[in-house]
Write a protein that binds this DNA or RNA. Structure first.
Lengths: 201, 201, 201, 201
DNA sequence: CATGAATGAGCGTTCATTCAT
DNA sequence: AATGAATGAACGCTCATTCAT
């Protein structure tokens, strides 16, 4: 399925009633907005109210908060994952592809701010989101990293998980602070991975 | 004295009763532990229980949660701030001092894990902690950065606030994840600040 | 029917669920009783317990204590207000109507004892109740007073607000004390308003 | 003891230490002020703080709140009681003495506002204050009432307790409301007790 | 004796979750 | 299937009261 945006999403579809499908989407939209406004720990009621549905409906579609959070960010993750190979194919140098992909990744984390927080959450409840996130993005990141290493553009032994995690961390709290722009740190971090930069350490 | 840890600290002492002073410390210890376990938003009751004192005692010593959080981390911040100039004086190269100081900084954030989370908190309530944190550490970081830049060891225009913030972010959630070690990203990040690392961008 | 007691009252009714309407009434009854027993500052929990509902239910129906207090006494006030003009129309002498109306007023204050206390409360929270009380009863009292004055049955310059307030005050604490019957003071007070009683002062 | 004001008061005195006696008085003064400001349910701490003594000291002198309240108002009550016979002896007509005495009574209730509230309190805790209050003032009121009745100036069968209670009630909440002046009702009430005022009823 | 630190019951309030309608 | 009323655990906080110092 190459265009996930074009369908009501696999979370529902199937023999469902039309209004049920519609509610699903309405809830996802509402939750996404509320997560940005009030964080992913926002009162369930607030989300249901914003969606204009009853509490029970929300619970029916997303029994746990984690289900909702996961569903909300699945799109983002999917699109990001798909961009990796494409960038690699298009770029002249693998390192450029990596840089562009991370830029995209940062875009997601920063524009849909809730995500970074969600991924950060210590709670067991978001294990599913974590898992999905890693399952989908770790291979992509690894591919890019490997390609750059194979081309001799990277000397560091940084692991994909570390990199993803670190970039994610750097993006936390970006919105609330105009003095802080994660990209101004990410660029040197990437440069630091290059071969010529490692006389010390 | 150079080791503030060795004294009951100015937060209390003075004409106070012995048990009051003791309770103050017991509470700080308990809070520190609980912050790690349950985050800085842990129920007040949990902290009081862990300390083995009544609720009222906690409130007497620390009327607001922010007071408690601030007190808990004041030590750490102070010791870290004092280490900066000392390292600069002792190191051969300013960049080495910077690296060592950041290592120390990471130590604090990582061993007293709650801190990074606390600094991250969006809440207005922790403005005092933020302020104290920045007031104390920003100048130190700036001094180290300036020294390194003056020695030609740094070419990046990274600002002290950005660096501090970024390092802090990278340390978030370190404990819960054995696969993640912030230092493995911090080292390349610092290398990326050096002159020879900037042909790209 | 002319007695508002006979209907569920506009406070609820409408498309509501049957049990919600029932709870509303159950809560009002319980609150009324508890107000008498423990005053209008009785613990919220006590009222909810007496009504046999959960805490949240009480909060749902009456978000603030003032809402509950007001709702509890709205009936009383309304019925009393409506009685004024009727008595005036039926009585031979305006003064008799006034006397009868005040008798009714006392009935309300004394049988639904909490009211006098509620009106007495200094708290800002009950401003709404105060307002409603005065909005509704002051004009009635004024009308009766004016009619009696116009008929030459009253010489005193007592103002409606004073009279209402005074009668209300006299009724405070009636229940707890068998030796005290406010009517035994109210009768002379009314007599004292008549023309022939004013040689002194 | 004709001038109770001139001595530290019987509540203490005796073989006590000088500072204990002083504390007693300081506490009474502080309590009196706080009762006016914050009502007789004001936090104990507030009173101790205003008096500049420790909590334990307050509790030592006045084990219960009622003890404190009673002690605070004992002076007032005593002075009022003593004024009755004096007024009766000086006045031309017993009714005038009654009127003046009640005026005095109202003065007390209104200037030391807390009193009316205290006497009103339903709580068992203030039984002692009630008792003292009645023990001391009821006979005085009775004497004045009897004298007026004996002189044919009063026809009503109002009982001393009722009158005292009613006047007290009328004074409740006077301070907070500029529109309300209890004396404007007390005057007609007293007039209503006179013989010529009773054709109706 | 005086002090005020410590205690903890008790209150108001929020909000996740269930379930009657 | 959708609704939202009901529930009650859990939390922050206050303050009367006790008791170590």
């Amino acid at each position: 399925m190459s265009t996930p945006e074009s369908q009501p999403e696999k979370t529902s579809a199937r023999g469902k009633r039309a209004d049920a499908v519609r509610n699903q989407q309405v809830l996802l939209d509402a939750a996404g907005e509320v997560f940005v406004t009030s964080g992913i720990d926002a009162p369930i009621r607030e989300i249901a109210a914003k969606a204009g549905v009853g509490l029970g409906t929300l619970y029916r579609h997303f029994p746990t908060r984690a289900d909702l959070v996961t569903a909300v960010y699945r799109h983002q993750i999917e699109a990001c994952a798909e961009a990796g190979p494409k960038l690699l194919a298009e770029a002249d140098l693998p390192f450029d592809a990596l840089r562009q992909w991370i830029d995209l990744f940062v875009d997601f984390l920063v524009t849909k701010h809730g995500l970074a927080d969600a991924l950060q959450s210590e709670s067991e409840r978001f294990a599913a989101l974590h898992t999905h996130f890693l399952d989908r993005l770790l291979p992509v990141c690894a591919q890019l990293l490997d390609a750059a290493a194979a081309a001799g553009e990277i000397s560091s032994d940084v692991r994909p998980y570390e990199l993803l995690r670190g970039i994610g961390n750097l993006c936390i709290g970006r919105d609330s602070d105009p003095r802080y722009d994660p990209r101004r740190l990410i660029e040197p971090l990437l440069q630091g991975l290059r071969p010529h930069a490692a006389p010390g350490a």
